[in-house]
Design a protein around this nucleic acid. Structure first.
Lengths: 120, 120
DNA sequence: TAAACAGTCAATGAATTCATGAAATGATTG
DNA sequence: CAATCATTTCATGAATTCATTGACTGTTTA
């Protein structure tokens, strides 16, 4: 359990990211894109509590297994989650705490300005 | 310049976001989705330097005006940027510093794990 | 090794997003 | 008020994403 949620000491990388780096930009956008779906985000919020296997996630979310598996696959392809097989089960866990921070930050920011939409 | 980049004191909202709130989740996902496009993200990275008008942004990004305008419109609809008209020009600016933090964080996280892609 | 369980993969169609170019709107200037 | 500059809107098609279903693979257990 502890083995799956390591590294990325949060302030290893506070500075950086000044002058524009197109590669980092694309990478960041890809991460955001992956986070930018309510279903996927919901999975990640669940995983904040600790590693879970696919069926457990699907149960908790009351969604079909295949769909959940595919969302996890996408999250994995962006290295947002990692996997570990244990017997029949495959456990998914958040790759590192940066992701948690990112999510919490957006979540909190989201609950702030909750007014519907700006003018037109 | 200072008038356009106010509020959101960064740690007004450090805790929060514990138990699952579907509305906040959707909102957060929407924000992420908006950030999840390289072109839009690039615009935001530009705006980190301060407010700019549409043509200036399009020039800087060497992209067509209409496209930039539409991306800005989307960012505005998610309240990620705000506008101010000044004569013929419309200036766009980041709504608050939370967004900057979010971006910097992802950007930094992005440059870390820059390995292509995980297995299959 | 067959059955059962856990998860993934592949294919399909529906829905959404995106870029592009042309027309329309707003604001200033001659 | 005509011309021009700045920006937005609209319409189109191409590309991408998403959910769904059924088949397939890997692992344990009887």
């Amino acid at each position: 359990m502890t083995e799956l949620t390591p590294q990325c000491e949060t302030d290893d990388h506070a500075p950086a990211a000044r002058s524009f780096d197109p590669v980092a930009c694309d990478r960041a956008a890809a991460i955001f894109r992956a986070l930018g779906d309510p279903n996927r985000l919901h999975i990640l919020i669940l995983l904040r509590q600790g590693p879970m296997c696919v069926t457990a996630i699907a149960d908790e979310l009351d969604d079909n297994l295949s769909a959940v598996s595919q969302r996890l696959k996408l999250l994995r392809s962006e290295r947002i989650v990692v996997t570990r097989r244990e017997g029949k089960h495959v456990f998914y866990a958040l790759t590192d705490d940066c992701i948690v921070e990112l999510i919490d930050h957006a979540l909190a920011h989201g609950s702030e300005s909750l007014t519907p939409k700006p003018p037109r």
